[in-house]
Write a protein that binds this DNA or RNA. Structure first.
Lengths: 245, 245
DNA sequence: TGTACATCAGTGAACGCGCGTTCACTGATGTAC
DNA sequence: TGTACATCAGTGAACGCGCGTTCACTGATGTAC
């Protein structure tokens, strides 16, 4: 019974850990990151404020857990939308990633702000956030790789990158393979540097636009936001030379 | 002596107001927006904490003042860099705006985060922030207008915007004229909708990239950041059909 | 199966701290005649 | 020019609040023989 009983304790523990995070997430969505208070969370759970310390060594650790969950949330949303598309519908997969990221952000604005907004002052992101943070970029890279290995990227007149930038792109190809988890690592070797930069640009544009929308900068500027993001997806796809874009 | 004496009081008042804002700005750059405390500010100025209320009705009002100053800071930086270029050096002006926004952001990271990062929870931006917030976008629009009225935008194969998006762009043309201050309002009538959308895209890409850099998302991804932003400027310029891009 | 012991979750009081804002006040500076 | 009054900046004590974290503790759950 050794393993079972230990398993029970662990299961209860996991459940409460999840409950704490759930309440924390709800508070986050009401008061934002700076207003997240362990006392308020425990109050709502009906436990002593000191009890959290059995689950998270500090408020920062709780924040880290929320950050990782948030990255995994967007990642998950994007992955499931993308994987619902036919593999050869490259533009469809591309659009699916753009749309699902925006959709997730609209549903979880404070979680989005937690990971893509201003860094929380005094908080230093630990290493463990790196891998989950890369999910969305990997999905975009995956589409481009599939095109490169399949029909091929249609040649497009790009702006030549500087030598330093080209080196960044090459380094990215090798680095990505290391960070990759659960078989996510795409066959990066098939990407030429200009395409890697194109993926970075698309990734930047996607989150730039979603951030601008969420943070209020499109207020009275862009109202047809769905259309706007779709167009941005198409523009970046065309810049990269995806077929059909 | 009526006007003079009132003038003296006003001048002293203005000076202290500025001093408070300066200290607040310094605290902002050390502790971030959530850590900005009126008590700490007055402590440093050697005055009673209640004294601030003679200058700002509330902490939020002080924050608003800092926000407006920050928008004017980037705007000023961009304007002076841009106006140092020859009027017909369109690409140069375009690059100057991109580079100077990034330069200002690197010099004032917390002020940047204040205006382009996550909205401060519970804080609602008053109307007075709208005009200063538009400065940079107006500068970009100005370059495009000058090209449109001069050599003309080189036709480029763009992605057609949806009808709704086209309407946004048209509305923007009329709205911008209203918001415009100190003769900034460019001759917007000369812009066709697709060009307006292109300006919005460039504006989005610029701040998207600067935010990603400042907020740490380019960490171990893009290291040649100056080159990267330059290239982004060139790509957006080419998409718009600026000559020489 | 029963007993002695170890592990662990959760408590509640306390520490030490800082915050934004109000309010009745003092004293200096400006105004009007 | 001199005097009575009004305006205003700045004070300091107080209100009422919430926070993260520590620590010695109780009691239940699991473990080993």
């Amino acid at each position: 019974m050794v393993s079972t009983s230990r398993g029970i304790r662990q299961r209860v523990r996991d459940e409460l850990t999840k409950e704490i995070k759930d309440v924390a997430r709800r508070h986050l969505s009401e008061f934002g990151a700076p207003g997240l208070s362990v006392r308020a969370i425990t109050r709502e759970l009906g436990m002593a404020s000191s009890a959290v310390y059995r689950y998270f060594p500090s408020r920062d650790a709780l924040l880290t857990a929320l950050i990782i969950d948030a990255y995994e949330g967007v990642g998950q949303a994007a992955r499931s939308a993308e994987s619902a598309c036919a593999r050869t519908d490259y533009l469809g997969r591309w659009l699916a990633v753009f749309r699902s990221v925006r959709g997730w952000a609209l549903e979880h604005p404070h979680e989005y702000a937690l990971i893509y907004g201003s860094p929380v002052p005094g908080y230093v992101a630990p290493q463990d956030t790196a891998a989950p943070a890369a999910h969305v970029a990997f999905l975009l890279a995956g589409v481009v790789i599939d095109v490169a290995m399949g029909p091929g990227l249609e040649p497009h007149v790009g702006v030549e990158p500087s030598e330093a930038l080209r080196l960044d792109a090459l380094k990215q190809v090798t680095d990505m393979a290391e960070v990759a988890v659960d078989g996510t690592a795409p066959a990066l070797a098939h990407l030429d540097p200009v395409a890697v930069i194109g993926v970075i640009d698309a990734w930047t544009a996607l989150f730039g636009a979603v951030s601008f929308e969420l943070f209020g900068h499109y207020h009275r500027v862009v109202e047809a936001r769905e259309d706007h993001l779709d167009r941005l997806a198409r523009v970046t796809a065309r810049d990269l030379g995806l077929p059909g874009a």
